[in-house]
């Protein structure tokens, strides 16, 4: 029963796929094809990310991380989180394990949010790519607007989390 509850999402999705295979075989087969193709892409993307966070776990001690991005890191912590975010050009799903590791090592939640938000919307390694396809004006406007939005989102969420919410997030990070 516990296993069932723990993997409810997986069970529901697998059943839906199974139903598609039976009732809409064309869609079902196509779905499985997409899933397999995406699985390879995801693995390819995630392998280096997980290697890096494993190394982070072993080599970076808590004190260092707390000093860099922890409670009293203030503006330096904000800057480091932002800089770390914008150079990390990976999709959201690959960012989350990194965020989990940052939390585990004692980074401030607002800093981790800045990291996630800045990395999702501003990816320096991809800027030239964006310019070449969308033009410099499109890229520049989005870049500047996103600068403000990243901090707006991080501040709004942080202000709405109480002590209990924050402790839950940290407890959770230890278990990952």
């Amino acid at each position: 029963m516990r296993i069932f509850k723990k993997h409810l999402f997986l069970i529901v999705v697998l059943s839906a796929n199974f139903a598609a295979l039976i009732f809409l075989p064309q869609t079902g087969i196509k779905s499985i094809e997409f899933t397999l193709k995406n699985f390879m892409n995801f693995l390819f993307m995630l392998a280096p990310v997980f290697i890096c966070i494993g190394l982070m776990d072993v080599w970076i001690d808590r004190e260092t991380m707390v000093k860099l991005m922890g409670k009293n890191s203030n503006s330096k912590g904000i800057l480091i989180s932002f800089a770390f975010g914008v150079v990390t050009a990976v999709p959201l799903y690959a960012l989350l394990p990194v965020a989990g590791m940052l939390l585990k090592k004692g980074s401030k939640i607002s800093n981790v949010l800045i990291f996630i938000c800045s990395s999702a919307s501003i990816r320096i390694p991809l800027l030239l790519f964006e310019v070449s396809y969308m033009g410099w004006k499109f890229t520049a406007v989005r870049f500047v607007v996103n600068l403000f939005i990243v901090f707006a989102i991080a501040i709004i969420i942080d202000k709405n989390l109480n002590e209990k919410d924050k402790n839950e997030i940290y407890d959770n990070a230890y278990r990952l």
Partner: peptide, 30 residues
Amino acid sequence: IALKKSLKMFLNILPQFIAILFLLGLLLAA
């Protein structure tokens, strides 16, 4: 040890990932 930890952390979230991939597959097919 780091590599073992990487693998453990990865396996920990693998069920969620597989579910997401199947859902994405369904969405893209539909």
